[in-house]
Design a binder for these strands. Structure first.
Lengths: 155, 155
DNA sequence: TTATTAAACGATAATTATTCTCCTTTGTCA
DNA sequence: TGACAAAGGAGAATAATTATCGTTTAATAA
């Protein structure tokens, strides 16, 4: 990332913290900047290792806590939608998934329901693609109904 | 799943076990059948809860061990490609990912590199889709080079 | 600027998901 | 059937993550 873009993102970060009433601590800024610079979609542990070079006294717990805060605030995104526990399937035929971001339910989505997934050009960096897995992220009917009901009873 | 299809899958399961020299234990068959019947892409714990109704003495460790064996044998697939640890990103603009199934590296794939992802028909079961996340699964250049080198030195 | 206070930090204990160890039991194959 | 390796069960060990609690720091108002 170019320095210009990084500056822009850090400014956005500080602004969002102010909006949300989050204290702008040294730790938070160093964590967010470290993650922004890392291209490899790191784990909390990996971020911790980098951040430690600037703040040797920082604790891993602080890194976890802030990453979670940033996720809740929409300053970060979780690449691993289904982390926490392994999810398995015996259906080995090619297919995709509908994933409810609320209750974490996973449903099959048949390839016929989708326009074919195809690369327009050769994949970058000499990567050999073996298959595509599409996740349609959203809200399932049950969770929709639930939040609908909650909204109605409130008004 | 219809009973016919389940029978077919169980037969395939037994055949594959024979091929790979895996003992056809009662536990294995009950675990595989349970997972085949479950539509919700369950966790090991969830499978354990179901299997326990048929084999109350089964241990959770056995469920884990066999699921792993089945994965290695290609009898199952892991829906959660990045389980184990959370992976994060600060790039909030819409984009997709290249995922190396060997070293678990994740690289960005810009939407311009892909034919647009679109549903052909309304999503099933009243699901509200918010965004698509495509994972192009395969082998990264580094891992390709590594296995190439290993192959050459062997011959 | 400084004083006040809630929020955040650091250390560490607790929890959860998963793997490992070790002894016993069970399929497999002669 | 019997022998033996493979698999199972119980529970300890490990890894990732979250919670607790006393101390420090950022925000804000005087």
């Amino acid at each position: 990332m170019e320095p210009r873009e990084l500056d822009r993102r850090m400014e956005l970060f500080r602004q969002r913290c102010r909006e949300k009433g989050l204290a702008l601590t040294h730790q938070r800024q160093v964590i967010y900047e470290a993650l922004s610079k890392m291209e490899h979609h790191p784990s909390p542990e990996a971020i911790y290792e980098v951040v430690r070079k600037q703040i040797p006294s920082i604790s891993l717990g602080t890194v976890y806590k802030n990453l979670k805060t940033f996720l809740d605030t929409g300053l970060l995104r979780e690449v691993s939608v289904h982390h926490g526990t392994v999810r398995l399937e015996a259906n080995m035929s090619p297919h995709h998934h509908l994933v409810c971001t609320q209750c974490k339910a996973i449903m099959d989505l048949e390839p016929e329901d989708l326009e074919p997934v195809r690369l327009k050009r050769k994949p970058p960096k000499g990567f050999r693609v073996e298959r595509f897995s599409v996740e349609a992220l959203g809200i399932c009917a049950a969770c929709l109904a639930k939040s609908e009901k909650a909204r109605r009873s409130k008004s």
